[in-house]
């Protein structure tokens, strides 16, 4: 089938846009590597794992505790936010009366719009002292996870809601005609049909949790250590950059760009996983 002239022009334009987006990502990676080059030149990559601690001014560059802090806080937040978010979507889609569902959805959208510093501020003033009563100092991995959960919950809820809304009405009618209960309809038909959309939403939320800086910076305590429990103070890769960049010079600055590269690689892995998971299972 031959394409019309307008179609061909559009294709060229779209290809150009796609190429531009890809080039920008590559340029960012290139820039990160270039900026971290001064330290990579004479510090072996293994030292970012094997050094005793993170004291870049004294030439100690251990990054792994911050990598685990980033992963733990993200996993914890996703673990809490995913069931809550899906439950909230199911409620507003299948259980709530239409008027209430509308109000509820507006409310969740509002929650999604609250800036992260506000969450962080609330965490620092209210949440951390509460946790501190249980187990001082209060600013901890747990506080970070809870604040992140609050922040990504609306993302999960709204994307799951949209995915459920996109389930063809014929499926639901068919299921209803077969006499399935409401829960049977949800678990047997709606959720499997919306699966890829829900997983994509969760991965989007995970990406947001990994990249979140200010809120975590304010509530997680920022001590560079391998977290052994929920009440330990931790520093994530993003907080590390935000905390130290303003006053870093020379190799210290370059080492911060290495943590940027580590962060970017983590995000690439997450996006790759999302891509694999959200592919429709093949039925033959």
């Amino acid at each position: 089938m031959s394409l019309s002239r307008a179609d061909r022009q559009l294709i060229t334009l779209l290809r150009g846009c796609a190429l531009l987006a890809a080039v920008i990502v590559l340029l960012i990676l290139l820039f990160l590597v270039k900026e971290s080059w001064p330290v990579l030149q004479h510090v072996a990559l293994t030292r970012f794992v094997s050094d005793a601690s993170w004291h870049p001014v004294d030439g100690l560059y251990k990054l792994t505790p911050m990598l685990s802090a980033t992963l733990y806080s993200t996993l914890g937040a996703v673990f809490l936010a995913a069931p809550l978010g899906i439950a909230s979507a199911l409620f507003s889609r299948y259980y709530a009366p239409p008027f209430l569902a509308g109000c509820y959805r507006r409310l969740i959208e509002l929650l999604a719009g609250i800036p992260s510093v506000v969450y962080g501020f609330w965490g620092l003033i209210t949440l951390a002292p509460l946790i501190g009563r249980l187990h001082p100092p209060g600013v901890s991995l747990l506080a970070g996870i809870l604040v992140l959960t609050l922040m990504i919950l609306p993302t999960v809820a709204l994307t799951a809601d949209a995915a459920l809304a996109a389930v063809p009405i014929a499926y639901l009618r068919g299921a209803a005609a077969l006499g399935l209960s409401r829960w049977g309809l949800i678990s047997g038909v709606a959720l499997p049909a919306a699966r890829s959309g829900i997983i994509a939403g969760i991965m989007l939320a995970a990406g947001r949790a990994i990249g979140e800086t200010m809120a975590v910076l304010m509530v997680a305590g920022n001590v560079v250590q391998q977290p052994l429990g929920l009440f330990d103070s931790v520093r994530t890769l993003t907080s590390n950059i935000a905390l130290e960049m303003a006053y870093a010079t020379g190799e210290h600055r370059a080492a911060l760009f290495v943590s940027g590269v580590a962060l970017m690689s983590t995000v690439l892995v997450v996006v790759g996983t999302a891509e694999l998971l959200s592919r429709e299972p093949h039925h033959d």
């Binding site: 601690s53 004294d58 600013v139 910076l217 305590g221 001590v223 560079v224 103070s233 520093r235 935000a242």
Partner: peptide, 13 residues
């Protein structure tokens, strides 16, 4: 002191 000797519970900006 050296910063490597400090044992903090919280690090701030």
């Amino acid at each position: 002191l050296k910063n490597t000797e400090v044992k903090p519970q919280v690090v701030i900006g």
